[in-house]
Nucleic acid binder design. Structure first.
Lengths: 139, 139
DNA sequence: TATTTAGATGAAAATCATTTCTATTTAACG
DNA sequence: CGTTAAATAGAAATGATTTTCATCTAAATA
């Protein structure tokens, strides 16, 4: 759980640019998943330097590839990202109403891979729906 | 397993247009998943009438919503569709090399839903990789 | 069989998230 | 401090997907 993102980036052999650090800061503080444009808006609110959208796209993708962020394929076909401190293999349940994210611990991926006649290289698994809190509010 | 797609479409309250029937025919015959553009190419090869891309997009999406086709979210971010006669709840393992699809029967979705603090409305689950045949060919 | 109409199609244009290009800047190492 | 590979910004391009809208047609009904 490094609040020291500089060290994290060094470990990943990425330069600790102000933009990267600011993006990481936003992502860690966000209670929900964010789209690249939303990350940009939040950066502007903080009166940080303006960060270009291509930079945000590049960094979100890179950090996602490195496992620092999780990527969410929304049904609306946009990409969203989420900072998850949990470094173990797991998946997420995403509330489409309030955008909060729950960890799914027992995902059964290992069992699944074992029944496949081939080699699983990428497993996309997402549960989307309405969390209990939002369910009860709409009732 | 209706080879009689007219009846299937009637059940779904969709008109049995020549375009729809042709698309279904292509999809059923395809040994792999197809992109909308690939469906269009195949339609042209058959010297059927030309079918517009928007029509293909609309129909693939509609038939996918109705459960007649399965949708594949490819890592390259394009959509692909696949005709699967298996009407039970299941998921797919997709070979990225040869594009063939295997059914995954024991997906653990029910167990997963039970551990979530909320209501799962949509579960995206895909295993992507290399099937055994392609694995051995590349060795 | 003719009429009617909701649903479907096609062509062109629009949309819009994402990526590329390229000149400029900068973090980090020595 | 100088060097250099990596990173950034802004503008432009990309390209899959969707919308628009005028036209057509399947199929229910008379």
């Amino acid at each position: 759980m490094p609040s020291d993102f500089s060290q994290l980036l060094k470990n990943l052999q990425l330069k600790a640019t102000p933009q990267r650090l600011a993006i990481l800061d936003i992502m860690r503080a966000a209670p929900t998943y964010l789209s690249p444009e939303e990350v940009q808006s939040q950066l502007q609110l903080r009166a940080d330097n303006k960060v270009g959208l291509p930079t945000i796209y590049r960094n979100l993708e890179e950090l996602s590839n490195q496992g620092v962020l999780s990527k969410i394929l929304h049904p609306n076909r946009q990409l969203y990202y989420y900072y998850c401190a949990n470094r173990e293999h797991h998946h997420h349940f995403v509330c489409l109403a309030c955008r909060t994210v729950q960890d799914i611990h027992d995902c059964g991926c290992a069992e699944l891979a074992s029944q496949i006649d081939g080699q699983v290289e990428l497993q996309i698994m997402q549960a989307l729906g309405t969390c209990r809190r939002c369910c009860s509010q709409n009732a």
